[in-house]
Design a protein around this nucleic acid. Structure first.
Lengths: 124, 124, 124, 124
DNA sequence: GTGGTCTAGACCACC
DNA sequence: GTGGTCTAGACCACT
């Protein structure tokens, strides 16, 4: 499986970093439906992170229907890419709403915002 | 002076909400250079919040050069709106960069993003 | 009398700003022994400052022997320039001690300090 | 880790004393990049001071890029000693500028200042 | 009255 | 265990 990468200095909690990376791996097809993912302990070891943290991430992913777990066998990627993509899109919509509103309230015109987004999308 | 409003539901800390509202008040010209702003205690009372919390917000604003404080007299709006507007724009640019990159990594096309932004900008 | 100038944004209290300016006026001979200085109220008005603040400054100056007051007539410059200069020198010595020690503890060499002082002395 | 010491007599606030001591510890290489520093509570206890006070100091240090904090794990020394040393030097330069200008305005010659600095640097 | 610092004690999310 | 936020109440110097 593709390797996850964490930023220990980031302010977003580690378990959320894991959740987000897993989501994009699934959405972008780098993880396939019904594929088995590494165990909590394996992931924890490979990320040099507390197993509880990984456990928390997996639980969240399961709650959202992105993983399903088979007792005694392990965790697997669920088969509902469409729903997931829609969910993710909703999340992103909300993020954009927050930040766009802030920008507008600070007096930026929509053209300025478009240009910033454009630059961010192509750049880097 | 224009009244501040808090969102008790929000996950962003109270003191940061105050900071952000003040910033936009200054940036949008609703607060003028050298204008005195309500005292720590007054603001605390009117927001039904502890004075220490307001103090923390005001201290942050002073650090960023948006306010200056005169002990015994009060806090005043600093005289560098231009610089501040540029700073704020930079902040917003960074927020958009983060979220735009996430969106792109999740497979959204730039047209989808533009439409989301457009909706958020005009909508409520 | 030469006019005092205050920096309202400065962190050193106004009454101390007055004290310090008066001292240097006396030391540098811009105020002469037995010369009368403006009354508390006059100074307060000309500085747009609370009379209590000026009163506090004058009291401090009197305590240090830089002024003497004649009841019913006003305040006058004392006649002990030598002593004052020595006092002031002592104050400055202490300030330099504090900051020099800090610099040394931060790993600066004395040559670096000399060069900084030199630059500050000649430069504006 | 090296122990911090407070001067209860000093007029500079406790949290600032902590900030300054930490800075010089980092600058002088007594604290290494990515080294974990004692927790807020531990430091508070060892200094016989309220945790909030230490928290305030650590927050300031993080703001200045000297520490980074990882919730749930602790605080760590940041990895930019060079930048910090330069910043500190700038601070010191400004302090010398202030006090040197005062000294000059009080009529001291640069030789007198040099001798004072020299004495302070070697002495004590 | 003002801002600024400090204490004591609590709660939260995270690891 | 960790850092971060918040409250309540106190004290100080300055205006």
């Amino acid at each position: 499986m593709t390797v996850l990468t964490l930023d220990p200095e980031s302010k977003t909690p580690i378990y959320l970093q894991i959740v987000q990376e897993m989501k994009t791996l699934v959405m972008t097809g780098k993880l396939h439906p019904h594929e088995q993912i590494p165990s909590v302990r394996k992931t924890a070891k490979s990320l040099a992170v507390n197993p509880n943290t990984v456990q928390k991430a997996y639980a969240a992913l399961e709650r959202e229907g992105i993983l399903y777990s088979v007792t005694g066998k392990g965790d697997f990627v669920a088969d509902n890419a469409a729903r997931i993509k829609e969910m993710r899109k909703q999340e992103i919509r909300e993020m954009f709403q927050r930040v766009t509103r802030e920008a507008r309230d600070s007096g930026l015109w929509i053209d300025e915002i478009f240009s910033i987004v454009d630059e961010a999308y192509s750049g880097r």
